[in-house]
Design a protein around this nucleic acid. Structure first.
Lengths: 170, 170
DNA sequence: CAAGATACGTCAACATGGCTGACATATCTC
DNA sequence: GAGATATGTCAGCCATGTTGACGTATCTTG
């Protein structure tokens, strides 16, 4: 295969070679990479009778315990009715518990139960397997490039929210 | 903001620093990057009364004119019934035309009409805007890293199909 | 050339996970 | 005490995926 990282042999049109083909390449790889990664856990989810919507909620609750419902809504960017359905199912299956917010009693803080955490860990293991294989093949330098481009795709208005996932809650 | 691209300050556990946090970072950025990019065209699509499924079909037909129905099915990885509904709507709106395959008359080759191509171009312009902004911010080296990691996420069995999108049909 | 495989289309029923709109309750803030 | 806010919930709708069954035209092969 030709070296896909080499830009056009005739530069000059643009300092960063933003030719149509390079954009389409990104669109396609993002599409296939994302969909194939999410496919990796569908079978596991189906065993539990859960769907991808449940996994997204489990994932973010695992990532940031004591997340509020409102914060989760902002992350998922769906309506509260849609999320309500998902959270109710997770609660009914004893995968998620809520507690009243200590500072603001209107809030509900979300946490995984032990079995919720176990399920999330099992699903995460699939993601880790795929993603770490891709990381290893591409190399650490590529991984940081991968991150940088994706960060640029997140609108300014959402960026802080995404970065904050890596912090413990105040 | 801290330099998010710098790996752990305490390497040694793994030669490529495959700590949980680095995997989660990839999962999240992929999720937000992908969903926010696709959100970029939803409004445009809604104007036409079309959905994302229609866009995916338009995109791949634009990318590889004279694609067969079977090839498109493999790319989208959905059932023929689902695709049939989408193609029928695109055909009814005069965005796509089919012609009988010249070598194998069972096949139908898909092509955009002029108005289909115009719509696809308009949608593509949105993607280009977002993605090229991200490319410029990240720099060419990051872009190649971005590609390499995503390639690693595409299963071996699908990889040739994805690469072949960039070639003219035989 | 006949038989079977293949490419495509279509009918029907159903599941998932989004959406809007309307309204209720508890709690916080001013 | 009045109004804003965080959450929940009922009801119905839509987009887009699924399975299963079946039909037709065309290609391929023994």
């Amino acid at each position: 295969m030709a070296d896909i990282s080499r830009p056009s042999a005739s530069p000059g049109a643009s300092p960063l070679f933003l030719r149509e083909d390079e954009i389409r390449r990104g669109v396609e790889l993002l599409y296939f990479g994302y969909t194939r990664l999410t496919n990796a856990i569908d079978q596991e989810l189906a065993k539990q009778g859960l769907g991808r919507a449940h996994h997204r909620a489990l994932y973010f609750i695992a990532r940031q315990p004591d997340l509020t419902v409102g914060e989760l809504l902002r992350l998922l960017a769906i309506t509260k009715q849609s999320l309500g359905r998902v959270l109710k199912e997770l609660h009914d299956r004893d995968l998620v518990v809520t507690k009243t917010g200590p500072l603001d009693r209107r809030q509900k803080l979300l946490r995984l139960t032990d079995s919720g955490a176990a399920l999330e860990a099992e699903l995460f293991a699939q993601l880790r397997e795929r993603l770490s294989a891709a990381y290893v093949t591409a190399g650490q330098e590529s991984v940081t490039g991968f991150w940088h481009v994706l960060e640029g795709l997140v609108p300014e208005s959402d960026r802080q929210m995404v970065f904050d996932l890596r912090k413990d809650k105040a």
